[in-house]
Simulated assay, not measured.
Amino acid sequence: MTQRSRAALSHLKFRHLALIEYLLQDGTLRKAARRLSISQPAATAMLTDVETLLGVKLFTRDRQGVAPTPQTLALAPRLRVLLNDFDELGAMLDRLDTGENEVLRVGVVPQAFTVLLPPAVERFRQAGGCYLRTSEGSAQDLLERLLAGDLDCVLGRLPPDMAAQGRDAASLSFINLYEDDVCVVCGPDHPATRLKKPGYASLAQCDWVLQRPSSSVRRALTEAFLRQGLVLPHPVVETPTYIQALDIVASAKLLTAAPRRTAMAYADTGRARVLDLALRVAPMQVCLIVRKSAEQHPQIVRFRAAFEEAATRTTREEVDRT
């Protein structure tokens, strides 16, 4: 096995990494050279230099352009993390001019954003937390951004195909924060609210608004119906998030499913009713997901503590209501 010293790797430059990324994106030395504002011969020489430094053949070349080798495809995720970290370094230098310094880039699934993020932000700021930049998306999308170095941490559920992430998942830490179960929800005027004990058979005759079939909430609901020997009705409305579904059922005679904490937040305002129906499916585990290399970063530790405190207080308030 070739041993590469840190001294040799220290000769790598940002432009070397950018060249590899542009070649992966564009597939030709001519286009990559244009993006780097250099000549094509200079880009060719730079590629030779970086291959020599790394001791790896990065691209094969023909008349159509360049194609990445398996070694390059293996290195690509780590290179993107380095490039994203470099971009964040530049952004931090810009913030220093305005009196700011650190920023914590947090990816949040809608469930956590709706109920727990607001009080967690307040606690984080009171504890001396830094500037926050939040992004919302699906658990899978946010996880991919975390692996690419575009986010510092993610608040969300584990994607159902987590095992498929392979070695990438081994670079992450998963810190359990709380569990949330799925419940059936309708608007305040829905006929189901007049049922003393709603049953699966009667609900199977109703119209539904649901998330995409791949969503964890819809999968849980489908499992619950199948266990009763029933097929979940095809929705009359399909939405990308359960937040949209809850907004729809608040003013339409439809049913939906949602994480209980979010559903109760709607119920507390009178916009929805949570039906007394036990789905008896495994609760969803919400985690703080970080790269292992950043697990002990002071701002991440501070943010974790703030979110755990917010989750604990919300759970205590739910118990007091029941």
Rank of each mutant, 00 (worst) to 15 (best):
residue 132 L to A: 07
residue 176 N to M: 09
residue 186 C to A: 10
residue 137 G to T: 07
residue 213 P to A: 11
residue 289 I to Q: 00
residue 39 S to R: 13
residue 162 M to K: 10
residue 148 A to Y: 01
residue 295 E to T: 08
residue 140 Q to I: 03
residue 6 R to L: 14
residue 148 A to W: 03
residue 25 Q to D: 12
residue 244 Q to K: 06
residue 309 E to C: 07
residue 39 S to T: 15
residue 240 P to E: 08
residue 150 D to N: 09
residue 275 L to V: 09
residue 170 A to I: 02
residue 31 K to R: 14
residue 118 P to D: 04
residue 160 P to M: 04
residue 280 R to F: 05
residue 168 D to H: 14
residue 250 A to Y: 05
residue 123 R to K: 14
residue 189 D to N: 13
residue 277 L to K: 04
residue 279 L to H: 04
residue 19 L to V: 03
residue 226 L to E: 15
residue 37 S to N: 11
residue 253 K to I: 04
residue 223 E to G: 00
residue 65 G to Q: 09
residue 105 R to T: 02
residue 79 L to N: 13
residue 292 K to H: 05
residue 307 F to E: 00
residue 253 K to S: 15
residue 221 L to F: 07
residue 264 M to H: 10
residue 250 A to G: 14
residue 248 I to E: 02
residue 304 R to K: 14
residue 146 L to I: 12
residue 7 A to C: 03
residue 79 L to W: 05
residue 146 L to C: 10
residue 77 P to E: 08
residue 119 P to W: 07
residue 256 T to H: 03
residue 164 A to I: 01
residue 265 A to D: 12
residue 49 D to K: 13
residue 189 D to Q: 14
residue 243 I to V: 15
residue 189 D to A: 14
residue 191 P to V: 07
residue 222 T to A: 11
residue 168 D to M: 11
residue 102 E to I: 01
residue 44 T to A: 12
residue 201 A to C: 02
residue 7 A to S: 11
residue 74 A to S: 13
residue 156 G to P: 03
residue 257 A to T: 06
residue 41 P to F: 04
residue 168 D to C: 04
residue 70 P to H: 03
residue 197 K to A: 12
residue 57 K to R: 14
residue 89 L to Q: 14
residue 233 P to I: 05
residue 193 T to S: 04
residue 304 R to Y: 02
residue 134 T to K: 00
residue 45 A to G: 01
residue 260 R to G: 06
residue 112 A to E: 05
residue 101 N to T: 13
residue 164 A to R: 10
residue 84 N to W: 02
